[in-house]
Structures are given as structure tokens and as C-alpha cells.
Amino acid sequence: MATHLDISQVSIEFPTPKGAFKALDGVNLKINKGEFVSLIGHSGCGKSTVLNIVAGLYDATEGGVLLDGKEVKGPGPERAVVFQNHSLLPWLTSYQNVELAVKQVFKKTKSKKEMHDWIMHNLDLVHMTHAADKRPDEISGGMKQRVGIARALAMEPSVLLMDEPFGALDALTRAHLQDSLMEIQKDLNNTVIMITHDVDEAVLLSDRIIMMTNGPAATIGEILDVDLPRPRDRLALANDAKYVDYRAQVLTFLYEKQRKVEPINGNAKATSSSAAKVANA
């Protein structure tokens, strides 16, 4: 299959008061059409930075991103982003939030009626038609995230970028949204890059899991192909040997190979002294 999205030799340096900070170093990744890829790694390693470079919100210092062979320059609706904290405009209703995106993308190609139907169709995909006329502060966190997804889907993006889309949600809502997302993915077959902290989420949803090393100068550590048949069912998979094995591989990467030792402020001394004790024993 031809490469749809090609991230090649991407490095980025942020200017800081203490000199340049190299956050990413030589990130290479090829993603096929319709593939669901998740990025996993410790906090601060540079996952969001990768996503923002693909989105065009950051410019890579070296290397670049090709979408269907064309270099990505600046942000655009063909690379829709679902932000971590929904980022809905608080003064617009769910409908209007989606409408803003639809008007922007389809103002030349769709009639008013078609746009309305398309907005409602996308709200329906995430089961949010009942709250179309509610503003973000009138709906729950999970519902906001759904509207955020509907807004992104409504742009008919060639790549859907999601930065910890369910990070702020409770476990039940999260499971529910993961199921919805798998359903939508089955129907639309989008190309998706999703950042997550949650190992189960990564294994359950992805075709491939990209594991990133710790920063600074983070890069891709390992790539895990998840070869589980779809549709996937979380209950059935819980005891599936393959699933358990994938899960273990990701955990091993995160907690053994890329163990993050970061002193927590104030406790730094205590931790290091207790670590010393352990070493002595």
C-alpha cells in the first residue's frame, strides 16, 4: 500500500532562555491510508510536539511531513485535530461549533441544506443530536469531547489527529467513547494518529503502536504491530493471549526500557536516600 502520511527525519528545537532545547530528534514514520496509529510515551517526551508538527501548528527544524507526496505547510482542515480539552468555542452551541468547521470547508461545494444535513449527520455519528442546541458548559465532559470529534470528522480530513482525546474522562465514559470511535472508524476508515497514556486504549484501538523514548531529543523507540481481528470487543480481549502479550510488551517498554526517574519536588531527597538504601541492600 502506498504511504499516505510520511514523517521523515523530523527534528525540532525550541528556543528557551537557556538556549535551544531539542525536543525531537530524527523521527521517522510512514502511515498508510486508513491506518489507526497510536503514540505512547511518558509525559513530556514529545508526543504532542509530533502531532503539532503533523498538524502544521509547529514547524520542524529539520525534516518534514509529506501528505500524499506533498509537503505539509501550516495548519489546514485536511489534518483535523481533536484537542485534549475539547477546545469547543464556549459561546457557540454544539451545532454551531460543527457548523463553523463545515462552513469553512464546504462553503463552495455544499448547499445550505446539504451543509445542515452534513452537520446533523456528524452529530449523529457521535450520538449528540439531542444536544445540538446546547452550549459546551451545558453538557458533560464526555459529550464535549464527542462534539469535538464530530467537528473534526465533519471536515472530512485525510488524517485525523487526536491528542489524548479521552484523557480527561472517567473510565466508563472513556470506554464508551472508545467503542464509538471504533464503530466510526469501521464505517469511515479514516487515517488516525492518536496520542494516549493508556496502554489498554492503545492496544484496543490501534493497528500500530508507536512507542517513544524519553526526551530530550526523543525519537521513536519501538513500533508494535497489533494484529487483532476487528471488530474488537474489550471483554473478549481481556483474556485473549495475544492481547495480553501486546499489553505486556508496551508496559515493558514504558516501565523497564524507558523507565522515567524523575524526582518529585520536595520529596527528591527522600527518594534518593531511599534509593540509596535499596542499592545498599
Binding site: A55, P75, G76, F83, S87, L89
Partner: peptide, 14 residues
């Protein structure tokens, strides 16, 4: 204006 909202605007190319 919140940075996230500015990003939304950029992604939409408003």
C-alpha cells in the same frame, strides 16, 4: 484568547 482556540482557528484556516 486561549491558545487552543487560536489553534482551532488556524486548523480551520478561518
Amino acid at each position: 484568547v486561549e491558545k487552543d482556540l487560536l489553534n482551532v482557528s488556524k486548523v480551520l484556516r478561518l
